[in-house]
Simulated scan of single mutants.
Amino acid sequence: MTILLTGADGYMGWPTLLKLAKEFPNERIVGVDNFGRRRWVEEIGSVSAVPIASMEDRVKAAHEKGLTNISFIYGDLVDRDFVLELVSVFKPRAIVHLAAQPSAPYSEINGERANYTQHNNTQSTRNLLWALKELNALDTLFIETTTTGVYGQPGFPIPEGYVEVERKGQRDTIIFPGMAGSWYHMSKCHDVNNLWLANSKWKLPIIDLRTAIVYGTSTPETQEDPRFATRFDFDFYFGTVVNRFVAQALAGFPITVYGKGDLKRPMIGLQDAVNSTVAAVKRGTDGKFEIFNQTSGPVSIQEVANAIQKIAGEMGVEVEVEHLPNPRVEKEEHQMVMENDRFIQELLPDIHVDIEAGIRDTLESLLPYKDVLSAYKDRFIPEQLLAKVAAR
């Protein structure tokens, strides 16, 4: 039996690969990646704060630690022939699809990157879905981490994927319409529609994990060996808001809150994101299309900044918080109330990381890399805002 995980070299992908290998010791866990994240971060002039080993060294370390069921295949999921061969050879009982260009800011640098993001992300997903269809493997469980960003910013509580609609006396339940705020998020709206189509036409069992903002540096699995460390991005393009704010604090750079900071966003710690993704593999769907809001709860951007300032202060690190003009088109006071009862009950009954504990752990974990963060502090915010920070 084989479980295939795409995006195995990524921030969340590598810890998930390790967790899968531990949870399913009698199954082969095959990771796939084309090392795109390493190239994209280098392209925008940044690095991972935490040094990461080559995939060759990672797999070697895993085997030394007894995780001999891990394998890795280099390849590009945009290549249809590669995907067909991959699925044909390994015949996975489950595919955990984490591979994507995941950055909204990167997707909006210019039209070329917008096109690249949407082609890369949607083509990869379609290739995997059609490989399962054409190879008569429609009993394979397909799990994808999409994003809570597909919901946009509606002015009412967001359901877990489906919404009841009443029109002219008629009622129906439909998938929540995609209202993305970036070209990246729109690529995931397209993925959701393709997942729905594959399930409705072929009865392919699918779990769509609408992943929130993920933060943190490690999981219990990545802490077992230095070669197991996962990447930590802190730049404007690839660093999530919590991770970027922590990095700013340690680099002596002001925490840059866009606008008022009242905006609330769904978040989840890295360990909880990994645990719940692995729990989905254990679940199965009986031919259904299930959607879960993969979040432990909403936190405002200002609350994140305040918590970092407080905890850093307790560690002897003085931190300033500055409010800058918001470069993004968004409702600055939107609370993004999101239902997640089914997710918590069925995939994450035990939350291991709350926001303050996660911030404290991240600050402590990154202390040895303060010099790296300081050296790349010009990558924290867009260039047009750097002058504003320097002038204050």
Rank of each mutant, 00 (worst) to 15 (best):
D139W: 08
D79E: 14
Q101R: 12
D79S: 08
I109L: 15
L141I: 12
V78S: 12
I95P: 00
A180I: 10
E166N: 10
R113N: 14
E85P: 04
A137T: 02
T122V: 14
T146D: 01
T146Y: 01
T140N: 02
H119P: 04
T148F: 09
N194E: 07
S88D: 11
V78F: 09
Q101I: 13
Y116H: 10
F176S: 14
V96Y: 00
T125H: 12
R93K: 15
S88T: 06
L135V: 10
F142M: 05
F142I: 01
T146K: 00
R126T: 11
S187P: 08
W130G: 03
Q101F: 12
T146V: 03
A180E: 07
A198L: 02
D76T: 04
P105D: 13
I174V: 15
E160K: 08
H97G: 09
R171S: 09
L77C: 15
N194P: 01
A94I: 01
V78Q: 13
T125D: 07
R93V: 08
P205H: 07
V96N: 00
E134P: 01
P159M: 06
K91G: 05
Y151R: 14
D79A: 14
K203G: 15
T117D: 03
L98V: 11
I206E: 00
I95D: 00
T140G: 06
T147K: 07
H190L: 12
L195W: 09
L138W: 15
Y74E: 15
G155F: 14
Q153D: 14
H190W: 13
W183S: 08
L129V: 06
V83D: 02
V163N: 05
H119R: 13
L138R: 15
Y151V: 14
D172W: 10
D81I: 08
S107I: 01
L86R: 00
D172R: 06
L141T: 02
F176R: 08
Y74Q: 14
F176E: 13
F156Q: 11
E164T: 03
G75I: 06
L204G: 01
V89I: 07
I174D: 05
V96I: 02
A99E: 01
Q123Y: 05
L204T: 01
L138P: 11
G155W: 08
G152L: 06
I143Y: 11
S88I: 01
L98H: 09
I174Y: 13
V96Q: 00
A99K: 03
Y116W: 07
H185F: 08
E134G: 04
I206N: 00
P102H: 12
I206K: 00
L84P: 06
Q101P: 10
A131V: 00
Y106A: 13
D79L: 05
E166L: 09
V163A: 09
V96K: 00
E164I: 02
I95F: 05
T145P: 11
M186N: 13
H97V: 00
N136M: 02
L197K: 15
I175M: 11
S103L: 12
G169R: 00
R171Y: 02
N110R: 05
F90A: 01
V163G: 03
Y106K: 15
I175W: 06
V165K: 07
S200Q: 14
Y106E: 09
T117E: 04
Q170D: 13
H190Y: 13
I95Y: 04
L141E: 13
A180P: 13
N115L: 07
E108M: 04
P159R: 07
